[in-house]
Structure formats: C-alpha cells, structure tokens
Nucleic acid binder design. Structure first.
Lengths: 337, 337
DNA sequence: ACACAGCTTGGAAAGCTTTACAATTTAAAA
DNA sequence: TTTTAAATTGTAAAGCTTTCCAAGCTGTGT
C-alpha cells in the first residue's frame, strides 16, 4: 500500500508480493515464463494495489509508443471514416492503437511535434497538401500515404485509380449522348483534382470529343455550398451543359439541390455524376450516380504497408492503385436533344 | 556526432556544445534563463546533431503526456467534427494536442488502456453509451462528458438543452396546426433520445395534445437508411401523421427522400423537422427545418472545464446546459386540412 | 557423488529527460 | 577591497519500466 497518494508503482506491487520488480514485470508482460504459484501471488498483489503499468515508462524502455497517427485533412467529410475504420482493424492485430488528428485544426507548425518516433510508431497521411518539409524531419517514424498523394514525398502510397474512375464516368455520360459536360473540380493543387481532371479529359478524348468542344472547368472546393452555388453559374450560361461531373458527392448533392430549386429536373434537364459514393448518395432524390472507391480497403492496405515498414521489411516505395466502380443510379439519363 | 545510427540524445548535444545536459535541457524548454552566448552555442549544436527531444522521456519525467483524448461514438457522423474543432482550439492555448478515437472501432475491452493518466492528461467523452466501469479505473485522468451523458458517470457535463430543443420544434409544428406528429427517435437507451422524447411529449402537452392522441414513436438509429425506411412505414399507415419530428438530420434527410420517392410532397403533404442542423440541411430540397445546437461552443466549453480540472481547480461536478435554436426553413408548413 | 541442463528469480543497468540543489562566476553595493 | 546578491552552470537524483546477465535451485543421468 503506497504511503502517499501517488499511483502505485511496480515496486509497491513487488514489496507487497515479496518478489523482485523484475518478476512483477514478467508476470505483467510474459506470464508464462514465471512459476504458477509466484504468478498467482503477484496477480493478487496487483489487484490489491490497483496497479496499472505506466505506459510512458514502458514506452521509454521499449523504444516504441504503440500508437499510429492518421493525419486527416477534414474530419467533417464522412468520406474518411470508413478508411479510418479499415486502418484501425488492421492495427488491432498488432495491438496498436489509432489516433486521429484533423490537420485542418493544426494550421502550420503545430503539427511538427507529432512527426517524431517518440510520439508514434508510424503515421498514415491522408492529407496530400501538407508541407513535405514537415516529414523531412530526422527522427520521423515510417510513413505511408493514402488517398491523396504528395509528389514531393517518397513513401508507399495507396490510392484509388482516380483517373480511371472519372474516365468511366465520362464514358457513361457519353454513351448517353452527352457532349457538353461540365467539370466541377476540387481545389486546384489537390492531387485528386489533378488525377480526376486527367481522367475527365481522357474520357472526352476517348469519346471523340475534342478540346475545342470542352467547357471551362469550374474550380470547387469539395463543399456542398460550392455545388449549390455552381447551379447559379450554370443557369447564367447561354448554352448550359447537359451533364456535370463533380469531383465529390458533397458538391454533387449541393448542385442537385440548387438545380432543382431553380426548376430544373435532374436527370431530365441535366445529368449529374459524383465521386466517392458516400452513404447519402443512395438516398437522395434522384439517387446519385457516383464513382465508388473501396474505402475500407484503402485503409487496411495502407495499414498493412505501415506494419511491414515497421517490421523493418523496408521496401522500395511503391504506389499501390486500387480500382473504382461506377455506380449507376438515377441522376444520369440520355441527353436532351 | 553519435557513433551508432541511433537518434541523437541530449548528451550528444551537450558534448558537442561543451556544456552539461542540464544546460541543453534548459535551452530547449526555458531559453530565457540561460546566458545568450551559451544559448547560441547550444542551439547550433542542436541544429548540427539534428536533435529532437524524446517526448516519452520528457513525459515520464514531467508526469504528463500533453495529449487529451476525445472518445467519439461514430466519426462517420459529421455532427462531431465541429465539436472537435471547438475542443482543439481551446487545447491549443495550453499546448495540448487532441487525439481522437472512434469508440465504434474499439468494441469492448480494448479501450481500457487509453483511460490511464500515463496515456493522456484528460479525456472528453462524447459517447454516452460506454460502460462506466471503464472509467472506474483507479489511475484515470480527469474526464468531462459532452453532448451525450452517462448517468452512471459523475463528471462535469456539457450538453445542449435537448428537451427544450424538441419542445420548440413541436410547438412550431403545433402552431402550424399539426396534431398527428410522429416521432422518429434515436436508439432506445441513448441519452439524447430520452431527453428529446421528453421534450417532444412536453411540447405536445403544452399544445394541448393529450396522450390519447399520441402516435407510437418509431425507434430509429440516427442513420439515413432508417429515415428512408420509415417513409415506407408511414405510407402503410391508415391515417398517416401530418408531420414527423426526427431525432437527427440524417434520418430526416433519408425520410424526405423516401417520401418524395413515394410521390408525397414535403411540406405540402407532410412536414419534417430534424435535429442538429448539419450543413446539408441548408442545401437539400426542401431546405430542412431543424433544431440547431451550438456545436463549437459545446466543444470549447468542455475543453475549458477539462483544463480547469487539470489545474486542480477540482469543483463539484456540474451539468452545463447550452441553449438551442429552431431554424425554420422550408420543410414545414401548415397541416393539411 | 558429481556434472550438467533447465527452470525461476533477483540485481542492476539502460532507456532519456527534467529539476532540486549545490557550486561557481559575475555584478553590484558598501 | 570586501561582502552580498544575482546570474549561470553543473552534478546527480528521480521519474518507472524492461531486460541482460548471473545466481540459485531442482532434477536427471552417469
């Protein structure tokens, strides 16, 4: 029983059990190597003192932390939760815990202290916009990138085939005779925006729609509000598009709302396609046609790679590309004549 | 320069700079108390060695961790992100970092190791369903609850006035002559569900609608799917309600979709009210009338309380109640005759 | 009776800092 | 010049584990 009110230490347990601290430690982390009788005694002493191991001390000694960090650009986007769940499932197998930090909450420097091997055993970066200098840090734990990619950062990457995804979408629209297709993009420098734009253009080319027919893309920001606002822009056009491809479902949802409010019917007057296939897309009216990503798989794959890296199976950084699937629903129809 | 490839220690810096480790430590954490010239020398040595302080060792010595944990029931719900952002802003003032764990990802026991003062300096619990035994732990850091409350857990609580919120909503509906109001609730044991149900019933009473006129509530789960499904249930009723009050916006959105798909018009045929006022509610068609919570304020308030607790200003656990505001939009209208 | 192996346990070092206290140097005051 | 105070730096302990190594003990085979 400890004299003061401080939490019990391992030595308190040892004293009460009449054994050495080494033995107590072994009971706690390697029970099978200590004799049955001693183990029983120690376990009872642990109970009695209410002892719990001090993680900080253990981590210091063992030179690891037991946590991996996920850097997420914006938690408000439900898109990430399934990825995180995929990560977390894999980590659990190695008794690692997943901590999430919303990088949106850490403007600038404040992020640096996290990127240290004394803070975490590894980090999964879901934010492609972070300053690569942050990771140039000498004592940085292993990193893998997922979803978004940072060209300046040489690590394993797990991304979906964004280019193929948007090309699929465009091809679908072109089969429905759409030629005037507007692209509502994400933020300009974003890696997703870039890849999806490439697929968009590739799709148009493949459909025999040349650059002279292309519409100027509208620069968005992945927000519902921007989608809504874009509806106004479309209404103001002299020859509006017959279809809009949006770089994410949130914008598509906002857009459909705006169009409907303006008296246009989706898909009769105008078709809309989204990207990500968030849950709501199945339930809105009309149900949204969208490019599906295998989110859970992105997460688990990234976690596997991190675990390998951690076990010193350091391999040449590779980019692992996951397929997409076009989910055709009700928001797309044949182009108006 | 370290012999091996291990990361540099403070003693490496000290040797290079020709000072004691104590001095180096002071330069790093209390620069102003060391002489200008020495400081310069040390800073250069830090640069040269690429030294970064080992957080684990520092934390062990200082008996704290610099992190506070937020336990969130389900990250897929965008409702939480603004709360988290509120928390994070307050914590930054004390140089604390916010780590988020999605309790949904940690079924059962695996959560216990987190609730330890060697893991975090405090925890903010947003999940009211967690087993109180988890927190009965002897070495648990200070706790405050937010949003949802766990009656069995005696801590500071920051919650919105759910009862008042739903009563406001019902009164609004009753002023529009609605009497047959259906309640689509959250999960049965959930504290929010209970409080909102109370407000619902109080509102009906106040509007002069007695229990004999009440409709049996529909038990939901805060999911869009459940809202959609409820639309079917309503259609099957012989005398359907003229209005539906939903315990969250997600369900309301799903419900509106389902109703619209069935050919009913919101709000002409049936009015819908949500709770939480998520971003999308402003953009759907029709725009959703909803009960607003001051999410950011919930978060920052909870964080303040935790900080106080941490500074030993331990006070009697209190429940702090924040107001709500009914945001009237387009999904509610006069009841059909 | 002895040698040897295997199982248990204890002592003490190592993991890396921060910080109380003491010691030294420097500046100021008398 | 001496005394006193202030500023700066160093030494060593403390924070709490885990784990290497050695030692003790038990039992078996010769």
């Amino acid at each position: 029983m400890p004299k003061t009110n401080r939490p019990p230490r391992i030595s308190d347990v040892a004293r009460l059990a009449g054994v050495s601290v080494a033995t107590v430690s072994r009971v706690l982390s390697n029970p099978e190597i200590v004799a049955e009788t001693t183990r029983k005694i120690v376990e009872r002493a642990v109970q009695e003192t209410g002892y719990t191991v001090n993680m900080t001390a253990r981590n210091l000694r063992q030179q690891h932390t037991g946590v991996v960090l996920a850097l997420v650009p914006n938690l408000a986007n439900p898109f990430f939760s399934e990825i995180l769940s995929g990560i977390s499932q894999v980590l659990r197998r190695d008794a690692l815990s997943l901590f999430i930090v919303d990088t949106w909450n850490y403007p600038g420097l404040t992020l640096a202290p996290f990127l240290n091997h004394s803070r975490s055993d590894g980090v999964i970066v879901l934010d492609g916009q972070l300053d690569p200098a942050l990771f140039a840090h000498p004592n940085c734990p292993p990193i893998v990138q997922a979803c978004e990619e940072n060209a300046a950062l040489s690590t394993h990457k797990v991304i979906t085939d964004n280019k193929a995804g948007s090309r699929q979408a465009i091809l679908h629209l072109s089969r429905l005779n759409h030629r005037r297709i507007l692209h509502l993009t994400g933020p300009v420098q974003n890696s997703l925006t870039i890849a999806r734009r490439q697929g968009f253009e590739a799709g148009l080319m493949q459909a025999g729609i040349g650059p002279d027919e292309w519409l100027e893309p509208v620069r968005g920001d992945f927000s519902v509000a921007k989608g809504d606002q874009t509806a106004q822009d479309i209404l103001a056009m002299t020859t509006p598009p017959t279809a809009v491809f949006c770089d994410c479902d949130e914008m598509a949802l906002g857009l459909m709302g705006g169009l409907k409010r303006a008296g246009l019917d989706v898909p009769r007057d105008i078709s809309v396609v989204g990207f990500d296939n968030i849950e709501l897309s199945r339930y809105c009216v009309p149900r949204l046609t969208s490019v599906r990503q295998y989110r859970s798989r992105i997460g688990s794959y990234a976690a596997e790679l991190l675990l390998d890296e951690r076990r010193q199976y350091a391999s040449q950084p590779r980019t692992h590309i996951l397929p997409t699937e076009l989910v055709v629903r009700e928001s797309t129809a044949t182009a108006k004549a």
